[in-house]
């Protein structure tokens, strides 16, 4: 495993105990320059993970708690008339930061959600006819509650696609929860900083230069094509999804310390990258296996 990455994962795992797999995925998402969506029940450590991750990679971040009365302007910013200069002055919102932590994104109204997601897609915001570029790179880590909970507005399918990965944490293992309970001290997140923001940028550049052979690309295409051809999939994976799979697989390969991508790497990130693109409504009626698992189980990586 790559040493730097190992260090980061170790540090984060001290806070988010027993979730090494999810931490690794979250880091991969960041290295692949993708937005991350964490979905789980309240109290499972979604917010903790996102905060720890942000401080570990040395990013400046703003946190927004999404509520049903949150307005687009609250995130993006507003133009205020200044009496002394007789001019409108733009007050940037929390979105103008390197990392935006959007807590419980599905509690906000669809209008606010789409304002955020549009900004994510275009990397800029327009207020009163003026365009303001966002930080580059700009990341969003959003958390959301499962959709069958009341008082939520599910994210539309077209916009779920903007998140590179969706991960869920689940209950911690017995031993991990025990050690969490034993831990008495308050956590100071600033202690958990591992690398600077500049170092993160070089890591990202390295990830991009990981080699992916034609065989691996064909494997990804085979998986993606299957979702398009088969009757079993109500939604199919878009070309954006195949790019996402490749980027995430490269990041995973880098974290793994490999110089090239193999089908194992693709498989490792595949569920996180594709599940929310294939079945937005958590569980398909009657089906016991997730569609992404179906896809993976259908393609033989040795025959590509």
């Amino acid at each position: 495993m790559d040493k730097q990455c190992q260090q980061i994962i170790k540090k984060i795992s001290q806070v988010v105990i027993g979730k090494e797999e999810q931490v690794r995925l979250a880091l991969a998402c960041l290295l692949a320059k993708g937005h991350l969506l964490i979905e789980d029940l309240p109290g499972m450590g979604k917010t903790t993970l996102s905060h720890t991750l942000a401080s570990a990679v040395g990013m400046s971040y703003n946190r927004v708690q999404f509520t049903s009365d949150l307005l687009p302007a609250d995130i993006i910013g507003v133009s205020i008339f200044k009496a002394d200069t007789h001019e409108f002055k733009f007050h940037p919102g929390p979105i103008f930061s390197q990392l935006l932590l959007a807590d419980e994104i599905n509690r906000a109204s669809p209008k606010t959600q789409s304002a955020l997601l549009e900004a994510m897609a275009e990397n800029q915001v327009s207020v009163d006819g003026t365009t303001y570029p966002l930080e580059s790179p700009f990341f969003v880590i959003a958390t959301q509650n499962p959709q069958f909970q009341s008082g939520t507005y599910p994210l539309p399918e077209s916009q779920l696609d903007r998140f590179l990965m969706r991960i869920s944490l689940g209950f911690p293992p017995h031993q991990a929860e025990l050690s969490m309970l034993k831990r008495q001290t308050q956590i100071d997140l600033s202690d958990y900083n591992c690398i600077s923001y500049e170092e993160l940028a070089t890591l990202q550049a390295k990830v991009e230069s990981i080699y992916a052979s034609d065989e691996v690309l064909n494997y990804i295409l085979a998986l993606v094509n299957l979702s398009r051809e088969s009757r079993d999939f109500p939604l199919s994976l878009s070309p954006r999804a195949s790019l996402a799979i490749l980027a995430a697989a490269k990041a995973w390969a880098y974290i793994d310390g490999a110089e090239y991508v193999t089908p194992d790497h693709v498989q490792a990130i595949f569920l996180a990258v594709t599940e929310h693109r294939l079945s937005p409504s958590f569980v398909e009626s009657g089906s016991t296996d997730s569609l992404s698992v179906k896809l993976l189980n259908s393609v033989d990586p040795t025959q590509i």
Binding site: T262, D264, L296, N297, S298, V299, D300, P301
Partner: peptide, 21 residues
Amino acid sequence: ALNKLNTHYGLAKETQQTPTQ
């Protein structure tokens, strides 16, 4: 190689598995 593994050691590969797995 996969054939040999199957016939000599009785280890059959599931569709999605890679040799490493």
